[in-house]
């Protein structure tokens, strides 16, 4: 019979083995590339010369560093907005949707099965000079000529990212709300707490861990985001991830791209650690 210790071994071994082999090893390769001299897509067989040239080049290019800082700020903004807007969705699913919650939740996720590229093309069509929105505005006599709506700007990137994150951002919050003991809310009501007071004193504190998970789940990948800026950001909305992507695809300068990715990884983790310290995770979870 399997004891708790044996069970633990079974629980921990597969994830660690899988991630060590298919995440840590590739990540180590990237780290090694970032410390490699030269540029280009150097094959694994070619001589490997250690150097910190790539980091020196990055440090010597203020535009890259500024963009990295800006991308962190954008990611924080997107994560805050997505968490706030996902919260009511999660609340609706947890407390109002009843037995249909699974259906309602799935309905939110299914549109993502359609290529993001195609969906963005459809949005561009609607927002373009000949699109539905402009037609409506001119029909109502509000505008004389088509106006450039939303597209090709940094706000467009933020709005679009929040829009695509909301359904996923709702998941951890919803999961956390499912665990709220309904008796606690009833008890609060019996003690004379009004709806708002019950919400603020019981629901919010108990769902906070889910909201935190959401925040980081959105924040972390958004720092390196490059698909949305490329599709709707235009010249002004470019993010740090677009430059990394450029060094890996347009330029095949893998060493410099690796150094930029490693720098971003370290900075992102630093922000996460500071954030966790600030909210004092242990107190939230207990």
């Amino acid at each position: 019979m399997l004891g708790r210790r044996g069970t633990l071994r079974f629980l921990v071994t597969p994830p660690v083995a899988w991630l060590a082999l298919f995440f840590i090893v590739p990540l180590a390769l990237i780290a090694a590339f970032s410390l490699r001299a030269g540029s280009g897509a150097v094959g694994p067989d070619e001589p490997w010369l250690a150097s910190v040239d790539q980091y020196a080049e990055l440090a010597g290019t203020p535009a890259f560093l500024r963009l990295l800082g800006l991308s962190v700020l954008v990611a924080i903004g997107v994560a805050v907005l997505a968490t706030l807007l996902a919260y009511p969705i999660a609340y609706f699913l947890a407390f109002r949707a009843g037995r249909r919650a699974s259906l309602y939740l799935t309905l939110l996720l299914v549109p993502f099965a359609v290529s993001y590229l195609l969906r963005v093309m459809a949005w561009k069509l609607m927002l373009g000079p000949e699109g539905g929105v402009n037609s409506l505005l001119s029909f109502l006599g509000l505008t004389d000529e088509p106006i450039q709506l939303l597209l090709y700007s940094r706000p467009a990137v933020i709005i679009t990212l929040v829009y695509v994150w909301i359904p996923f951002a709702a998941l951890p919050i919803y999961a956390a709300m499912q665990r709220i003991d309904r008796h606690q809310l009833e008890a609060a009501a019996d003690l004379g707490a009004g709806p708002w007071s019950r919400f603020w004193r019981v629901t919010v504190p108990l769902s906070l861990p889910g909201a935190l998970v959401t925040f980081f789940m959105v924040f972390i990948p958004t720092v390196g985001e490059y698909v949305t800026p490329a599709l709707v950001g235009g010249t002004d909305g470019i993010m740090y991830g677009n430059i990394i992507q450029g060094f890996f695809t347009r330029s095949a300068n893998w060493p410099l791209g690796s150094a930029m990715a490693m720098t971003m990884l370290v900075l992102t983790l630093a922000v996460v650690l500071v954030g966790l310290r600030a909210v004092n995770l242990r107190r939230v979870l207990s």
């Binding site: 990237i30 789940m217 990948p221 720092v223 390196g224 490059y226 990394i244 890996f248």
Partner: peptide, 8 residues
Amino acid sequence: PLVVPFVV
């Protein structure tokens, strides 16, 4: 794995 862009 969240931190590393997909292209990387």
